[in-house]
């Protein structure tokens, strides 16, 4: 890997962080059966902030962001998204889900629908927008991710990178204020990783609030305002990317960084 050389010529994206709180998580705990996956998570994300979450596999990073839009249920503590607390109340869950977009490792596009239909489905059936308007938004978003020409193809006919960009466009069509990215490049070939990361950088520059679970350290350096390192269900260390990479404090962070950076 050549993270060093990549970041030098790319330069840092500008900081869009504001003072407004987008997500507030306090003392959040989660168990899978008797297994304690998330332990006392405290995290505050500001509007416009970009956070990269990293850590060894099984450390709970994916579970953490899946809790934010209730794909997983937490059992203790509170999660407040845009002032709405995530409870068992369906109304709150609906509200939060329509404000939070999520992109998955395996794209999870709907194989029976065309690219365009994938993008218009939720606006039409959840937001109740007209088909014309939904199509217009969808085409706009597909252009943003630079694949408008694939609009009438089925997901199965696209490459992995293209599929992942469609998945991003699909989330953007709901006009989310927060985007969650769950290892979105892990299932892609190297040459496709760049096209997806470029799309994400573009989003970052527009001031989107983002939480990314990723191992792309070059991306983290360039885009993140904050890097969080998780292990065994706990937030072990967090810092600005430049300090996090140059001067890790915790032993576990050091070990992890040496494993993924130093070959």
């Amino acid at each position: 890997m050549s993270e060093e050389s990549d970041t030098k010529d790319l330069g840092k994206t500008k900081d869009t962080t504001t003072d407004e709180v987008a997500i507030h998580i306090s003392n959040m705990n989660k168990w899978f059966g008797t297994f304690h996956v998330l332990r006392d998570i405290n995290l505050e994300v500001k509007r416009g902030e970009r956070i990269v979450v990293c850590g060894p596999s099984g450390s709970g990073k994916s579970t953490l962001i899946r809790c934010i839009n209730r794909l997983e249920e937490h059992q203790k503590g509170s999660i407040i998204v845009d002032g709405t607390e995530l409870t068992t109340d369906l109304k709150n869950i609906d509200k939060i889900r329509s404000e939070v977009g999520m992109v998955f490792q395996h794209f999870n596009l709907f194989p029976h629908l065309t690219t365009l239909e994938n993008c218009t489905l939720a606006p039409i059936w959840v937001r109740e927008t007209s088909e014309k308007e939904a199509r217009a938004i969808a085409m706009e978003m597909l252009e943003k991710v630079k694949i408008p020409e694939q609009a009438h193809k089925y997901p199965g006919q696209l490459s992995g990178g293209q599929q992942q960009r469609v998945a991003i466009a699909r989330s953007l069509c709901m006009k989310p204020r927060i985007m969650l990215f769950d290892e979105v490049t892990s299932a892609l070939d190297p040459e496709m990783i760049k096209e997806v990361l470029d799309t994400m950088i573009q989003l970052a520059e527009e001031g989107m609030t983002m939480i990314c679970v990723t191992h792309e350290m070059g991306f983290a350096r360039q885009v993140a305002n904050r890097v969080i390192f998780m292990d065994e269900g706990q937030i072990v260390e967090q810092n600005k990317p430049e300090k996090f990479f140059s001067n890790p404090k915790s032993d576990r962070t050091k070990l992890f960084l040496s494993q993924i950076l130093g070959h």
Partner: peptide, 20 residues
Amino acid sequence: NVEYVRDKEIPPAPPPLIEV
């Protein structure tokens, strides 16, 4: 300042009674 380093390990706790 966003810097934070965990100084104390949280041991795994048993889940709340209603879960098990």
